[in-house]
Structures are given as C-alpha cells and as structure tokens.
Design a protein around this nucleic acid. Sequence first.
RNA 1: GCACCCGUGGUGAAAUGGAUAUCAUUCCGGUCUUCGGAACCGUCGUUCCAGGUUCGAAUCCUGGCGGGUGCACCA
Length: 561
Amino acid sequence: MKERLEKAIKEALGELGLPSVDFSLEHPKELSHGDYMTNVALIVGKQESQNPIELAEKIVENFNNQKIEGIEKVGVAGPGFINFTLKREAFAKALSDAQDKEWGNTEVYAGKKILVEHSSPNLFKPFHIGHLMNNTIGEALYRLAKRSGAEKATPISFPSDISLGIAKAIYVLREDFGKDFFPSDISVLGDAYVRGTKAYEDDKYGEETGIHPVIRDIANKLYSKDPSGEYLDIYEKCKDFNIKYFEKVVETLGSKFEGYIFESEAGEKGKTIVIDNLEIFQKSTGAIIYVPEESKKLHTAVFINSDGNPTYEAKDIGLLYLKFKNYNNPDISITVTDNQQTSHFDVVIDAAGKINPLWQKNSIHRSHGRMTFKGAKMSSRLGGVPLAEEMINAVVEEVKEKNKDISEQSAREIAVSAIKFTILKAKAGSNINFDPETSLSFEGDSGPYLQYTAVRAGALIEKGKALNISPSPESPVVGTETLERLVARFLEVVERAQREWAPHYIVTYLLELAQEFNSWYGQGKIVDEGDVSGTAYRLYVASSVRQSLINGLWVLGIETP
RNA sequence: GCACCCGUGGUGAAAUGGAUAUCAUUCCGGUCUUCGGAACCGUCGUUCCAGGUUCGAAUCCUGGCGGGUGCACCA
C-alpha cells in the first residue's frame, strides 16, 4: 500500500508539472487523521514559494482522478498535510493473520545468526535488582530476535567466576568455615563477598593483618587453576552451587540460556590474544595497556595487570573471540549491560576491531539504567543493593493485598509481569526508581492491565463458544474499524522494535490496543444471541486483539494467564 | 578537569523534525441488569533557561543551569 501511494504521489507531481522532491509518507500519530500522511505539499510549497494548502488541494484532486485502489478518502489538513484513509479491506489480511499464533513474526533479520548475551551474574553474589533489569531487557531482545526470521537466535550468559573479588570471598569462607566448607545458601556467599571486600580494604580480617599477599596468592592460584590449592576446592563447590542457583532464578523469570562463556575461559583466551598482539597493545609499568587514538576520546585501559592476570578488558576480548568462534560468527552479537559500562565497552570494541574487524562490525551494545527500590520491607545486603527475590516478594504482598483469594503462583506471575512491564515501558537507558506504593500500579499502564485485557477477550470467545458462535470475518459490523487498524499495525511495530532493538515500542503499542479494546468493550454488547452474524464478526476482531496481546506480551517475557 | 547520558503535568512515562505534545497515576465528578470492574467515561494540570537552524523544534546546533555516570592495573 505504501509503495502504491508513493507512486501515486510522484505521478501527481509529474502531471501537475511540479518538481519531484523527497517527501515523507508515514502513519499519523493521531489515528483519527487516517492511515497515512504525507508532507509533500509542504516541501513543494517551500521550494516553489506556493501556498502549501492550495497545492495540497490540487494534488488531492489529481488523486481523485487517479482513482487509487484501496483508498477510502483523501483529505487536506493542518498546514498542508495530505491524509489517506484506507478502505477497510486493506486490513482484512492482517486481521486474518492475527488469528494465528505466528502473528507478529517478521523477516527483519531473515537468515541471520543472532547472539544475545545478558544477565551475566557474578557467581559469588546473589541475583539482585540490577540483574533483574538486565534479564528483563535481555530476554525481550532475545525474543525479538527469535521472531525476526533469524536462522538462529541464541541466548547466552557470561558468568563472572574469577576475579580478585572472588578470591577475597574465598579467603573469608576458608577463614570462617575451614577447608571443608560446603555452600548451603547463596546469602552466605554474598556475605563473604562483602566481608572480603571490606577486609581487603582494611587489609585486616579478624586478628590477621597484612592479608593482601594471601588474597593475591589465592587469585593467582585460581587464575592458574593450581590444583594443589585447597582454596580451589572451595571455589569449585561454590561455582557449581551458584550456577544451579542462577539457573533456578532465571527460570522463574522465564529465561533459559543455551550456553555460558565463563570469565575464567575468556580471561585465559583474552590474555593470550593480547600478548599475541603487542603491536596493538603496549607495555607500561609492568602492565599491558591499550591507548586509543586521541581523536576517539576514549580512555586508556589496562588489559593485563602487573601480576600478569587479565583484567575485565582482556576478558572481554577473550569473550568476543569465544562468541564468534563457538557460535559460528554471528551476524549480530548483542551485549546487554548497565550503562556504567558504556565507555569500558567502547574501549574494548575499539581495540577488538584492530584484532578482528568482524568483532567490531557485528557487535551491538545495549545499555540500561540502574534500578533502585525503596521499601521498608527490604533487608538489604550487599551494601544496600536489594535482591531480586526481595523485590518480587514485596510486590507479591501488594498483589495479595489487592486480591485476598489469589494463589501464591498467580500472585507471583502478576508481580513479575508488573515489574517487567515497568522496566520495559521506558526507553532503555534511564534509571528507574521503584516505590512499591506508587510506581508499581496494577491499573492503567501496567502489565496486569494488559494480561487482564487479553483474558477478557478470551472470555468473550469462550462465551461465544458456549452459544455455538465462532469467530468469522464474513459479516463486518460497524464500530470495530479503529481496532482493526490497530491490530494491523502490530506487525510494523514489531519490525521497528527489532530494527532498533527497542522493546518499549511494543509496550506503548499494546497499551494503545488494550485501551481501544476496553473502550469498545464498554460501548455495547459484543456477544449477542439475537445477532449471530454480528457476534461472529465481533468475536473475530476480539480474537485478533487477543492474539496480538498474547504475542506482544510474549516478546516482553510476560505470560498471558 | 575531560568525556558520555539525561532534564516533558504533583508523580511515572510516550512522541520517525510534523497537525491542538500523548498515556497512566493522583484529586474531583460520573457509568454499573458483568460479556469476570485489575474496566469504562469526563474535568484540572506539562516540554529547565537563552539564542540559532527550519514552512514547522520536546526532538537538530551553540551557550548556560540542574541531575547521573565514566575516566590505569576492581568487575
């Protein structure tokens, strides 16, 4: 349709003896303005110094002579915009497609291999609300990829299983529990991590002072996988325990990873790569660093420290190597991190491009803001960072307060959907401050509102079934035109979200759709025994709305009850 | 100091350079013979400041002001 209109506009310009110009042809923001609008008269008017409204009227007259197929009406509005309203038949195909589970699948990345890395945990820290945010966004990006026609979309994670920080935690665990320590609860490890950091800062733990050399030695043993160290034994047990914990947590959030690249593997590989590329990196005071060109306005970064161990930067180089090797050179490789890491990532990618241009070309970095959570119920650990579980529980309490009879599982589903929705409705990048009292509503703009609307549509269809009326496109009725337009638009909304890797477009769209549906619902009877053919059509529309909501929510990682 | 991100009703957000800046929430007023009301309808209320570019600026440019983050061996 869009191409047809573009052609018609060009034809009109030619017939009227007007210059051909670059014009836009878009959906107007306001649905009541029609289905497409063009600014062609404004552009020509400017160029030819003519009144744009009069020009627009001439162009419209030409359109009417052209008798373009599928157009209901063309009009001039505002300062000289031309609005096109399509005939209802234009949406028939979309409405029919929207009856199907596959509705919303696109061809945006047809045949591509897409890798999405997200949720990367520190294996000695519990899953906190920062991970919750990362997981929600990462999972949504993965699901967008999955519906984009990609040959393969793969979600992976990059767990931190090795660092000086982890050595600090191991040290504390060994001191407190002896060499036979066995982890029983994640919080024990989290506490050890925090206390280890503190001990290292103070250079004192318990009675013992001057612990730096001991901890550095542990770190070295971990890096070199020294089998003689009893610390390694504790470490391995903690690592196993943690991976299981991580998998359990993300499963309740609806994600599953197809693979992991551990920081320990990436570090080893990264170190080798850096050492093999000393023409790109350089030595400085015992360390190996990377100095970007001045014009790039990036900072110098240490890749291998003076102990000879890879830093986060070298680990990321190794990570890139392993991603492209293990996953068969993905066409798009997305990394989701906190936006504090943006400049770190820029430096790494700049250096990486010199080692292998593909690593730079195919990598995309999506960053998100930080999440804070106010609430007296929080027993904050980790220096004040609330755990994801604590936050979810607090919201579950809110849900139960609203509905006393609700089951634990349903309450949890609703709580998770409300949290995910709040994270995804904003353009990624800004910080979110959760206040369970005010910012997490279950009414209006919320996950539960969308779930509710989908369920409501489902209930209508069930009711129709009980009366032996099934959805049918045969006898269109008045009143559903706007809804039909909106349903048809779902496809391009998904496409845009995929192109820009921005799930929030889907959120905005679903809200608009749900509002329109609920408004229609309130206007009159949908299932009417006295009007079987009309009911069948209305159910057909309801069913298309329902499928759009379900599929849209799925992309957001929200299940429809 | 340098760099990056951000400033939209009381609050939380949306808006490909387009039309009267959109939605939610709060307050107030309504709908109710439910199709499962976590709904629907209505009222009040907003682009940090000053210039500039443009037919047209929340959006682009310059300069302020305010907030956040990052800048050498942590991750």
